[in-house]
Write a protein that binds this DNA or RNA. Sequence first.
DNA 1: TAATCTACGTA
DNA 2: CGTACGTAGATTAT
Length: 877
Amino acid sequence: MTDSAKPTLLVVDGHSLAYRAFFALPVDNFSTKDGQHTNGIYGFLSMFVNLVKAEKPTHLAVAFDTSRQSFRTREYAEYKANRSESPAEFKGQIPLLQECLQAMNVRVLTKEDVEADDILATLATQGAALGYDVLVCSGDRDTIQLVTDDVTLLYPNVQGVSQLKRYTPDAVVEKYGLPPEKYPDIAALVGETSDNLPGVPKVGEKTAVKWLTQYGSLDELLTRADEIKGVVGGNLREHIDGVRRNRALNTLLRDVELEVGPADLEVQPIDPEAVRDIFSRLEFRTLLPRVFDAMGADPAETPARPGATAPTATEPDPAQLAAWVAAAGGEVGVTLVLQGGLPVRIGLATADAAVETAWTEEAAAALRPWLEGDAPKVLTDAKPQVKALRRAGAHLGGLAFDTLLAGWLLRPSLPDKNLADLVGRYLDETLPEADPTQLVPETEGATPGQLSWYTLRVAAALRAELPESVAGVLADIELPTLDTLADMELAGVAVSHEKLSTFSAELAARADAIAQQAYATIEREVNLGSPKQLQEVLFDQLQLPKTRKTKTGYSTDAAVLADLQETNPHPFLDLLLQHREAMKLRQIIESLDVAIAADGRIRTTYLQTGSQTGRLSSTDPNLQNIPIRNEESSRIRAAFEVGAGYETLLTADYSQIEMRIMAHLSGDPGLVEAFNSGEDLHRFVGARVFGVEPADVTPAMRTKVKAMSYGLVYGLSAFGLSKQLRIEQTEAKQLMMEYFARFGAVRDYLRSSVEQARIDGFTETIFGRRRPFPDLSSPNRVLRENAERAALNAPIQGSAADIMKIALFRIHGEFAAEQLASRVLLQIHDELVVEVAPGEWDAVERIVRSRMGDAAELTVPLDVQIGRGADWNEAGH
DNA sequence: TAATCTACGTA
DNA sequence: CGTACGTAGATTAT
């Protein structure tokens, strides 16, 4: 009980523990997709949060070495000289670890010319003198000398850093047979190979302890060294200078001048946003809640700041509600609580008041004029709410702001997915949420009215940060698109269960037959879906040459198998490829089949914040990756049919939209001419590159320039081009040179756009959508070059996405304005699928063609291809 | 059971 | 050593 009042100071040697973690965890298992290794950081932080959670220090610091040089190396040049350079994979991790600790508001201490352990020694000594309980955590055995009744050492076990052994004075005596202050004497005699401090040959711990016990002290032992008999006695006398030197060097400094003392190290609340940022960069997910938990980011302990208490929502009757919204004036936050896709409750808020009510017929009727009118409304994740209102027969008008969309536009790489995330990031507060694991939650969740109030405040914070151009993208592109997507999702697309199930059964039978044949060729049965078992078959049993390395072994992907088939033909390879193809198709068909609703339609969800470039993504099921490339897949597309009550499907796609954007942005005269000439793009480019007439461009030439043109948009290298075209790198290089000799402005544009992004820190589309690229100035080459390719692509892919969205909502709007029953069903990046009502084909075709064609004013035309058919396969031709 | 890896479908 | 996605099954970590 007396100890509860006593402050606890925890000081940690960051470098030594991170280094141990580095070796304890497999480096290959811990790296970001960009190639940054993180095993040392992860291992350290994992240990660190456990430690903090278990020990609950009141004061905390982590010390690091500044370099390998210190006063010890100056006094003894050989000190640690045998240490090999720490691995390159480890080096970069220390600054990132320090960044993590800073985000957690943990004091990071360094001092020129001394080692981290000297800082620990100084703080431990000062802390003990001030009456603290001191915990020292280090992987360096020399810190044993710091142990006293007030100072406990936590020392990692051999395995790694997860288990820490507690060294109290008793534990030291038990382990070494002498009290902690004598440990440096033992170490001086035994030596420390890792520090390049040789000890007395043939003297280990046992002998050292025996001597020290016998003579009482190291000094006494050394002065009476001649009393010791035998070889070891001689060894001792020969190495007396070395022992004295060891003893001098292994004494930790307890009087290092530091800018802070123990009292300055009080534990601070973490910076949640900074921690989220750095952890998401390092791709730590499971660690995040552990850090929040251990570092006391508990909502109960960090109450919302003063002035941030949500108003208590009142529950006016419907008539009062109508009066309330009429009087509200400015923007109103709106939150609909949904159940089964329908609204059950609605909460509204202004800056200082909140109201809410059950979604009854009376309430809906009272609110409808306001809800459907132009009065400005602010929501978080409006799309599901807009859909629910549609199902309930209402329409949301005046959508002025969606915080989720705005947050994504501002930081498209972040995983913020709900109001709670946004409140944390932009208000630095915690959204009150009921604990879903408790039947009777201790903490009340925010009510719908209060959620609306938070939404309004988040919106204000976002607006303050939103650059004008990005605000324009929100208002002029994203919000109109949201409304369109809601209708598309509600409509769904008719899919024939009969067609799918017939095909699925066929494929299952085929896959089975292929598998049997494959087993026969290798005379055993394996799981053809297991990369691990396949590696055994290919590289052990069949002794095929090893392929491209992956994290866990050797690749068995389609490209690799095709290569193997050429160099080392084996029937198994081809059968495996056929099996994969059949299984993949079957799997896609199955996932579609189970998604067909009772009315025969599939409804996807478009994620409007699902990409970093501005594209949509589609999920549950993904209707943006339905196969098209081979013969078989046309049968899948044929299952997407025109629905009952409609006449036909229309498909409309932009041809080469990304190359057209490139022509526009670069202003390259050759490329612009190509698109204005009406000639086939690749034929035109091929003619220029190879110096022949367009009519004389061979298919091989066309293939090459086509790959080159598309590759450009992705930052393709000569290496990549040679691999894709299966040509020599020199030929690929030659091709690129010829290409740029004719279309030089393209290269100039790509280069300058990346350079501009490096200066600005972000890229921008034609319409002002931004994407940040902090890694463009990273010293890490892998990181930087990855960012460069992404930055090169972002304005092009993003502008295409902008153009398609603009076309999409304008088409949607025009269908409504002309009171057409036809409706857009699908968007696949550069293609739209429209369900055309009887008698509306001409109007629909006109609208789609013109709105897609004039969605943007470029220096080259936007070419639109239209197809018509009873199913998606037919319409796509 | 949850996270990760490999493979593969689309633009 | 080519951008942007989502999904499934196997494997590994917990």
